[in-house]
């Protein structure tokens, strides 16, 4: 254990990140039209059974995929409107992130900081949740055309989650 005095200084990434006020406007002024406001709330769907019997899926915009899968298209100015399937049995060492626009150096050390696949495997083993769907889903968050994104990526992933993977619960995380 290191003495408090010899610990490195504050992480520069902390600066201005607490609560990130005004992020919506910041991003939207940089990439006009990329941020969305919806007028309506989606009615909540209730859990139909205890969590310990639920099949859980995970959806992430961190751009992670299996190492032998095709990389995400990060050079394209409007983004990549495809997604990748990640087997829910995958480990840190099987996975790689190809994405710009957010820091993933810590995720390169431990993928679970942004895609907690191994923690979810543990929760399933401990029967906190019933099981994991065979596949999780990943895409890149840099998509500058929300309508196109909604029409293609959102619908296709939602359909796969609900109809094909038969998830009872979906956890989601941006990056």
């Amino acid at each position: 254990m290191t003495a408090a005095g010899s610990l490195p200084g504050p992480d520069p990434r902390e600066a201005g990140t607490q609560l990130r006020p005004g992020l919506w406007h910041t991003i939207n002024s940089r990439y006009p039209g990329s941020m969305i406001t919806k007028p309506d709330f989606v009615p909540l769907v209730a859990l139909r059974k205890p969590l310990s019997e639920c099949r859980v899926t995970f959806v992430s915009s961190c751009g992670v995929h299996l190492k032998n899968d095709a990389p995400m298209e990060v050079a394209h100015p409007f983004g990549d409107f495809t997604f990748r399937r990640v087997p829910s049995t995958a480990k840190h060492g099987d996975l790689i992130i190809h994405q710009l626009k957010y820091p993933h150096d810590d995720a390169d050390l431990d993928i679970n900081v942004i895609f907690p696949i191994e923690r979810l495997q543990e929760l399933a083993a401990e029967a906190v949740i019933g099981a994991l769907t065979p596949e999780f889903f990943s895409f890149i968050g840099y998509n500058m055309d929300p309508e196109r994104f909604e029409a293609i990526v959102a619908r296709d992933i939602a359909a796969a989650v609900v109809e094909e993977q038969r998830a009872d619960v979906a956890l989601l995380a941006p990056a």
Binding site: K38, V59, S61, G141, F149, E150, A154, V162, A170, L172
Partner: peptide, 8 residues
């Protein structure tokens, strides 16, 4: 991300 969440 919110779009997919709403859709699901």
């Amino acid at each position: 991300m919110g779009l997919i969440q709403r859709e699901i």
